[in-house]
Amino acid sequence: MDLTFISGMFQKILTGLPLTLNLWLLSLAGGACLALTLNLMRQNRIGNAIAATYVFVFRGTPLLIQIFMIYYGLAGFGFIRQSFLWPFLRDPYWCGLLALILNDAAYSSEILRGGLRAVPKGAVEAGRVSGMGRATILRRITLPIATRQALPAYSNEVISMLKATALVSTITLMDMTGIARAAISETWRAVEILLCAAVIYLVISMLVTRASAWLEQRLSPWQFGRTTP
């Protein structure tokens, strides 16, 4: 084991951390908004069919093919190259981010749907009786209960998205995996380099697991054998 090489490699790979974090957090935020929209669409038949098809397509195909389809595929359409979107869709960063958002939305919307199903009807009726509007019920009753129910499943999704960001390295982006991949072709010391990268991802995902366990305990302490504060 060559310690100077490994510590140098850690520093080198960490320069990709901001891009990884950027893609991760923005795709989660974008995905969450889109997931909520998809669930709100499910209230009528056409909307339901659209949302169901969307989820079917994005959950049934690999993320890698979605990334390539957006990055390489969309450029083949003349009207896209002429449109105002082209400066964005030409850039691997925006293509990668878009693919991650679309993919995350499909998974998150199913998780949220599970959470929404668990909201007791009585709670919504109580809100209606006390004169709340639809938006208020959504904001103050439905969403808080649903997100609490969905939290354990969502924390898994948060970790999968961290892992998913590694795939943008295939469209030339220099995130942590991209840097590792470039370093491999320079030095051919694959095992050391890949283990360095793996350790960084592992630390972040363990922090997420800890944070979500802490949040769950805080939100419903009675489930963990503690008395209500």
């Binding site: 491999i184 890949l194 991802y201 995902s205």
Partner: peptide, 22 residues
């Protein structure tokens, strides 16, 4: 289980491919 849950799949594949070659 903790390690494999936290490391991107593509890194594991690279590890087996390049590492296996080594």
């Amino acid at each position: 289980t903790v390690v494999l849950r936290g490391v991107p799949d593509i890194l594991v594949i690279y590890l087996f491919y390049f590492g296996g070659r080594q």
